Simulated scan of single mutants.
Amino acid sequence: MTVDSPLRRLRLRAPLLIWLVLIWNLLWGTWSWANLITGVLVALTVTVVLPLPVVAGGARIHPLPALYLIGHFLVNLTVSSAQVAWQTLRPSGIRQSAVIRVQLRTDSDLLLSIISQNLTLVPGSMVLDLDRRRMALGVHVLDVGDEADVERQRAEVLATERRVVRAFGSAEDIARLDQEPPQERATAPAAAEPTR
């Protein structure tokens, strides 16, 4: 059993403390010494009274893949917003939606959370289920016409996983990307249902 020194605990909490102080100052809308000092006091109080559980492994930021992830996310957000707007306004409406199950290769809680948020924040897709034990996501997607559309959506989820892992994963996580995702083909690959 190892005992953490107060200095090490403070170093591990520093990013959260800085983030909380930044949010505190943004909420007040002005930068002043009073807001900075009270922000530090509030951040320390929150982290001591309401400590967050330790995330195993943590994140490793790889700058170039992280920039690529952010750029791709912003482009995807813009394009998907326009597509969903068009699908809702066009006379034929949205054809069908589908719920697909996608096997992932990462088993990191943090990376699975980032992947899920990345997919859910983009209009037209939403993570409905995260099966941590099986490393699988259940994703609802809009406007699928046939099996090729379903496979294209599945490939996009796997591409999102690849971008997130390359941006924030460990060397082991990145090496696991070269493996094929474990297949669970006993269940149907997609369930499509009309949305009317």
Rank of each mutant, 00 (worst) to 15 (best):
M1S: 12
R11Y: 10
I18P: 10
W19T: 14
W19A: 15
L20A: 08
V21A: 11
L22W: 14
I23N: 07
I23G: 08
N25S: 13
N25Q: 15
L26Y: 06
L26I: 10
W28I: 11
W33A: 11
N35P: 08
N35K: 07
G39K: 13
L41V: 15
A43R: 10
T45Q: 14
V49H: 14
V54C: 08
A56K: 10
G57A: 06
G58P: 07
G58F: 06
A59Y: 14
H62E: 00
L67P: 07
H72Y: 12
H72F: 15
L74H: 04
V79I: 15
S80A: 14
S81Q: 04
Q87E: 12
R90P: 01
P91F: 03
I94Q: 01
I94R: 03
R95T: 11
S97E: 00
S97L: 03
I100Y: 01
I100C: 01
R101V: 06
R101W: 05
D107K: 11
D107S: 15
S113W: 11
I115K: 02
S116W: 00
L119G: 01
T120R: 02
G124N: 05
L128E: 04
L128F: 02
M135W: 08
G138S: 09
V141C: 02
L142M: 11
D143V: 02
D146Y: 02
D146A: 01
E147Y: 05
E151K: 03
R154A: 05
V157L: 05
V157Y: 00
E161N: 11
R162I: 03
V165Q: 01
A167C: 00
F168E: 01
D173T: 10
I174K: 07
A175D: 07
L177V: 07
L177R: 05
E180H: 14
E180P: 11
P182C: 09
P182T: 14
Q183K: 11
R185T: 14
R185K: 13
P189R: 14
A191E: 13
A191F: 13
A192Y: 09
R196W: 12
